[in-house]
Write a protein that binds this DNA or RNA. Structure first.
Lengths: 234, 234
DNA sequence: CCAAAAGTGTTCTGGCTACACCCATGG
DNA sequence: CCATGGGTGTAGCCAGAACACTTTTGG
């Protein structure tokens, strides 16, 4: 048994630290999409005077009774109306002066969504998709958060089939390759790409062909169903 | 120019969110060391009644005027009296009920220190080194934090020379291999290990020999000086 | 001479890269 | 018949894994 002489209860400990509850906790979501052979990111025009004219990531303060992970789902749901979406924590940014409103520690999450599945809520000019390559200046430290998240994403697509979140259910190998090229920002050799993908054993051949293409149609594939379950852990 | 009609100043925004400043932000440090062919972690006996008898990681609340990263350095410095130590953020843990004292979001950092360099401050039984393999139950969610950090560490030692932080300046290849084996918790082939390390080109041959060993002495090496600078980024 | 660890090279396998030709379809 | 992309295989290189013998030192 531990000596209990100087043990304190949790309630006691809390009261002695009240002065520390002066830091706000927020979540910023780096929501990636794919469209027209470009990797996109969903940005919103900042509503702070300090950053007038600049875009920022989608973020919000975490509620006192809300898990950190849940907060990121809430933000995503509010903005894209998508449930059951891929989301993963990237890094936490906590320098003192990163937010002009006061001390805010923010945890970044990145997400991959299929742009076609939720054109609904995005019809104004303040919230729209931006080509990642062309994003140069963002509010707060959001450029750094975006860069960190992109590196994270590049690492993940080599090892995990997360990329399915960006695509429709059925796709050709060319389409898949184009998504990889957009994310990695580099061209890939077709034969080597196909070999590598085959080796990973992520895909099912649907025995269907592309349609509506003005050239020889390619075969269609989908990701194995067991891989696109449990988005949260993939 | 953006329409400024519904822009608000940062100060204004802050006042409208005061009710959110109810989450405490803390840092937990997973301080790894190496001794007697074992990977160790520095743990302290919890001072909460709820966790009487259990050990926990070293952590503290982040001060309102203190960068998150700085907070982790402060904790490390307070406990080990070491400056200029390797520290890296791992993950942020933010479920609502992870701390019995109230809502605490905690960012985990891991650190690698040379146990021989600071025997000073660690002489009581409440703060001591534990063999990682034998750690089974910790206070809070610290077991999970430890596990996540260990995975992170295992990934890093393959790509970055961070392992030098665990060793004395001069060491033999056998000693180095033993540290890798302790971290990976698996035996390695001597010849392959030496080839791989040579290929990484991290080491300088000191043209010195081991001493005080009762067998054929090995050559001594050190890490290239430029690699052991800027600990914070290695 | 014994115990303990140092030091060293080859073979096999698998993944990664570079690279070129014929085929199917639509227009 | 032309344009567009589909589909396919080989050779070279490199990294990783398995594996055994001789050498040096202390005791």
């Amino acid at each position: 048994m531990a000596k209990s002489s100087n043990l304190k209860t949790a309630a006691l400990e809390k009261s002695s630290h009240l002065e520390y509850f002066k830091i706000a906790v927020s979540v910023d979501c780096v929501i990636f999409g794919y469209e027209e052979k470009e990797l996109k990111v969903l940005l919103i025009k900042s509503d702070l005077k300090e950053f007038a004219g600049l875009y920022s990531l989608l973020g919000d303060l975490v509620r006192p009774d809300e898990d950190l992970d849940k907060a990121s789902y809430r933000i995503l749901k509010e903005r894209t109306d998508l449930d059951d979406v891929f989301l993963q924590q990237v890094h936490t940014f906590g320098t003192v002066n990163r937010h002009p409103s006061g001390r805010v520690v923010s945890t970044a999450y990145y997400s991959l969504v299929n742009i076609n599945n939720h054109k609904l809520k995005i019809n104004n000019n303040d919230l729209r998709w931006h080509t990642v390559k062309n994003v140069h200046k963002l509010a707060f430290d959001h450029k750094e958060i975006l860069a960190t998240s992109l590196l994270h994403l590049r690492g993940q697509i080599e090892e995990h089939p997360v990329i399915h979140n960006l695509l429709d259910e059925k796709f050709s190998l060319r389409e898949l390759q184009e998504v990889y090229e957009a994310i990695l920002n580099t061209p890939l050799d077709r034969r080597n790409f196909r070999k590598k993908i085959t080796l990973k054993n992520w895909l099912v051949d649907l025995n269907e062909m592309e349609d509506n293409v003005s050239h020889r149609p390619g075969k269609l594939y989908k990701f194995k169903p067991k891989l696109i379950k449990n988005n949260k852990l993939t």
